[in-house]
């Protein structure tokens, strides 16, 4: 579904990614772990289409298309979703309005008709219960005055409403207490399916107790230095990242 080959990228003239190879098939969940500054967030934003990154080598193929040639909104319409590590606040734009506008923009891009207002409301209500959010929160500005945990739940809600096919979740687990972590994990698990894939970018092993990955990759200094099964995450938790840094 997603294939990254020998990806090199610079940010502000500095080499951040130095040759990433990664293939994620439909139906799989992969975790990318690594210390701070290893390039995890850069990789996540590159996939979503943030400006300001210079790809110097390599390519990314998504569903057979050259992903890097697509605008962020085109990637979204093709089913790419990024859960932000730091979701933005947009005072004055209600979450409900954003969800509806985003869903219809994606549908339009795919040549589908706009969703009926009542169907949309029912659709959102059903998903709200999954993340234990009150509908009143959706009438407020996007993330306006939300706690860190509420912002992350709102990211998961957006994912559940928009039904993407490929999800990159950038530290969606960080800053969550254990109850919120469970809610967020259930939301992520609800999106697992044979036609979808998930890339979990995380600093902690904790999330992987709730969302079982098929593969775990360790990113250090811009390269994937080790890949393995779920047991690799446990190993990292016990030994830290130090031993890999020296191995790299």
């Amino acid at each position: 579904m997603l294939e990254i080959r020998n990806l090199h990228a610079k940010v502000d003239g500095k080499d951040i990614l130095k040759g990433i190879d990664l293939a994620v098939n439909a139906g799989e969940v992969h975790a990318v772990m690594g210390p701070n500054g290893s390039g995890k967030s850069t990789l996540a934003h590159l996939l979503a289409g943030r400006e300001g990154y210079e790809v110097t080598q390599g390519q990314v193929t998504y569903k057979g298309k050259d992903l890097l040639a697509l605008a962020p909104e085109a990637r979204a319409a093709e089913g790419m979703f990024l859960g932000f590590q730091y979701p933005v606040e947009i005072p004055g734009v209600s979450s409900m309005y954003l969800l509806k506008t985003a869903l219809n923009a994606q549908r339009k891009h795919r040549g589908e008709p706009e969703i009926d207002a009542m169907d949309f409301l029912a659709w959102v209500r059903d998903r709200l219960t999954k993340v234990k959010m009150d509908i009143q929160m959706l009438h407020r500005g996007v993330n306006e005055g939300f706690s860190g945990g509420e912002k992350k739940r709102n990211e998961v809600l957006q994912m559940l409403v928009l039904q993407p096919q490929f999800m990159v979740l950038d530290e969606t687990d960080s800053g969550l207490d254990i109850d919120a972590l469970k809610i967020v994990s259930e939301g992520i698990n609800a999106m697992r399916g044979p036609d979808r894939a998930i890339l979990l970018v995380t600093h902690y092993q904790r999330l992987l107790d709730y969302v079982k990955p098929d593969r775990v990759h360790v990113l250090a200094r811009g390269r994937i230095v080790k890949s393995g099964g779920p047991e690799l995450a446990r190993e990292l938790e016990e030994k830290g990242y130090g031993w890999l840094e020296t191995a790299a």
Binding site: G49, A71, A76
Partner: peptide
């Protein structure tokens, strides 16, 4: 950028 990742064009 956030809005674009949700599907809104620029």
């Amino acid at each position: 950028y956030y809005l674009r990742t949700r599907g809104l064009d620029l």
